[in-house]
Design a protein around this nucleic acid. Structure first.
Length: 572
RNA sequence: UGCCGGGUCGUCUAAUGGUAGGACUACGCCCUUUGGAGGCGUCUGUAGAGGUUCGAAUCCUCUCCCGGCAGCCA
């Protein structure tokens, strides 16, 4: 009985670490039947033509996570078969991002271009077995003869060329004797197939372009459908996991491997990730970069891994998010609030608390001595007392958040207003006595009194206040820039809108605050370091623009804010 | 009008012929020296119609809806 309970417990635990999904069920079944000798080998196969985004992160976590769960391996393989679109800049960024996410491909860093020679030889085999031919139709003619989804295509007049002629022409293609567009190598399958991918798809095309790895060695390059399945086969991939749009390609994937009679991995498709209020297509992301809607691929508003990293996301939070979204074949849209939840959940446990005033309002504590300053003890993280405490300076003049004062308090407003008392976090209870304004009626400062007997930790007065607000000492605090980010698009699904996505960009997706006041301990903050600014949110030192004497913080995510909800409700 | 794949709370995702559950969101309450965190609770769901069955989200039939496919892109 005890054993049974323990087993159930441990099963539960392992389920928590590796949540199951339909792909793992397939693998379980394969392991039962011994299909791949109980071996599990996956791969993450990006094309180096853009930066990785959160959708790729899901795929990375799935592929590496699946390998981990089954004691297998996951390769990193660049699908670099189109030199005109690819670049080492992207290779480098992808390597950095996958590593940062916490995954290790050990020595298994591969490129489809590593296999160009083998791919070529296999193509010759296809010709020799009568399964491929060189087609001299123009690109336009190929398109015209392909038919449409509802109308079958017609066979190319070059389909019946002799094997010798095909071998000869293919060699000429390889040797640069023929020009781009003059001919291609095609698989000989079925021009009447209801699956367009099977209507004699192109295997090789001529591209007299320099490749970022093979240079000018090749002037013919294999197409995805051919290169991908063969690359998987060469690497002895067992489960080739890809997104739904390749489902129609699976018959072709299988066809090549059957004709070549080589190791046959199983392709499995799952639904790609869509996130609300952003776009995920590389083309659109590139447009945002090129047309300066954002500052670059790593702009903190971008859904790219590098953007999220700069924004303040942690690898842990992204991996957790990937777990939360699940894996299925149903197309869907994940609410960005789930991503934010994953980050808060992580940072709540780990981020050091600190006080920062974003929109400062000066407060003079009139009954506090002018020349006095004292140090108060603050807890670094109430969720984790092992993170210790620190000292924060307190003095007669402090800054509080403008929002924490209202001359005329709305209903349910608990913070400062004339005559009202609040506690200063880790310090004293103060009471607002006077509101000082300039000639035009703007509030310039508050005069308050404090109760010396209410010091945090040693308050014996039993006084109760409705609110605790954050603050910094005016003379001790330092100035910093803080960037507040909001969603990049104004609507949930920019891709589905009839308007061009450029028109849907949120014009106020960033607010830059230059005169924020932060507690002095922050002068030591390192680039990339993350903090909770108490009551405000989680912030990350910007890794690009922040300098020792000019700190810049990015707001990664706000804290949940009950007051905002109350405020919104009463204003409706 | 072709082929392929999908339709379970607002959003994701479980239940694999046997109590429709979880997470996020929203709302409410408790707690709180962060209006944070935490705790408790509530709301809301099997696209439709038939059928098989003691019993159907699950199997069968039909209908409806959504996505993908006509690059010498991946």
């Amino acid at each position: 009985m005890d054993n049974l309970i323990n087993n159930e417990e441990s099963n539960k635990n392992s389920t928590n670490i590796y949540p199951t999904n339909f792909i793992h069920e397939i693998i379980d079944e394969d392991n039962k039947t011994g299909k791949f000798n109980n071996r599990v080998q996956t791969r993450f196969p990006p094309e180096p033509n853009g930066y990785l985004h959160i959708g790729h992160a899901k795929s990375i976590c799935l592929n590496f996570g699946t390998a981990q769960k089954y004691g297998g391996k996951c390769n990193l393989r660049f699908d670099d078969t189109n030199p005109t679109k690819e670049d080492v800049e992207y290779v480098d960024s992808i390597i950095e991002d996958v590593k940062w996410l916490g995954f290790d491909w050990e020595e298994r860093l591969f490129y489809a271009s590593d296999y160009f020679k083998q791919l070529y030889e296999y193509a010759v085999q296809l010709i020799q077995s009568g399964n491929a031919y060189v087609c001299s139709l123009s690109p336009e003619e190929i398109r015209e003869t392909r038919g449409t989804p509802t109308k079958s295509g017609t066979e190319s007049p070059y389909r019946t060329r002799s094997i010798e002629e095909n071998v000869d022409l293919f060699e000429k293609m390889k040797n640069g004797k023929l020009e781009e567009g003059q001919c291609v190598l095609r698989a000989k399958i079925d021009m009447t197939s209801p699956n367009m991918n099977m209507r004699d798809p192109v295997i090789y095309r001529i591209k007299k372009a320099s490749h970022h790895r093979t240079g000018d060695k090749w002037c013919i390059y294999p197409m995805y459908d051919y290169a991908h399945c063969v690359s998987d086969s060469i690497e002895r991939i067992t489960h080739s996991i890809c997104t739904l749009e390749f489902e129609n390609h699976r018959p072709l994937y299988d066809w090549f491997l059957e004709k070549l009679k080589i190791f046959h991995p199983q392709q499995i498709e799952f639904a790609r990730l869509n996130l609300s209020y952003t776009v995920m297509s590389k083309r659109k992301l590139l447009t945002l970069v090129e047309e300066n809607f954002v500052s670059g691929w790593d702009d903190p508003r971008m859904p790219t891994i590098s953007g999220l990293r700069r924004r303040g996301f942690t690898p842990e939070s992204i991996r957790y998010f990937s777990e939360l979204v699940g894996v299925a074949k149903r197309d869907g849209m994940i609410d960005v609030s789930l991503l934010e939840f994953a980050l808060r959940d992580d940072l709540n446990k780990r981020a050091k608390r600190v006080m920062a005033v974003l929109k400062p309002l000066k407060v003079i504590i009139t009954n506090y001595p002018e020349d006095k300053a004292e140090e108060l003890e603050a807890i670094n993280n109430p969720e984790d007392l092992s993170m210790g405490t620190r000292k924060i300076p307190f003095s007669r003049e402090i800054y509080i958040e403008k929002d924490d004062f209202k001359e005329i308090p709305p209903k349910k407003y608990y913070r400062l207003y004339p005559g009202q008392e609040v506690r200063l976090r880790y310090a004293f209870i103060i009471k607002c006595e006077d509101v000082i304004k300039d000639k035009s009626g703007n509030i310039t400062e508050l005069h308050c009194t404090y109760d010396p007997d209410t010091k945090s930790g040693s308050d014996k007065t039993g006084k109760k206040v409705k609110a605790t607000i954050h603050w910094v000492s005016a003379q001790h605090s330092i100035t910093a820039e803080v960037r507040l980010y909001d969603r990049l698009f104004t609507i949930e699904d920019p891709a589905s809108d009839e308007k061009d996505f450029r028109e849907l960009v949120n014009n106020s997706s960033v607010e830059i605050l230059k005169d924020c006041r932060i507690e002095p301990s922050l002068s030591q903050a390192k680039n990339g370091e993350k903090f909770q600014f108490e009551r405000l949110g989680y912030f990350c030192v910007d890794s690009i623009d922040s300098k020792e004497n000019n700190l810049v913080f990015n707001r990664a995510v706000t804290l949940k804010d009950t007051w905002v909800k109350i405020e919104n409700k009463s204003s409706q």
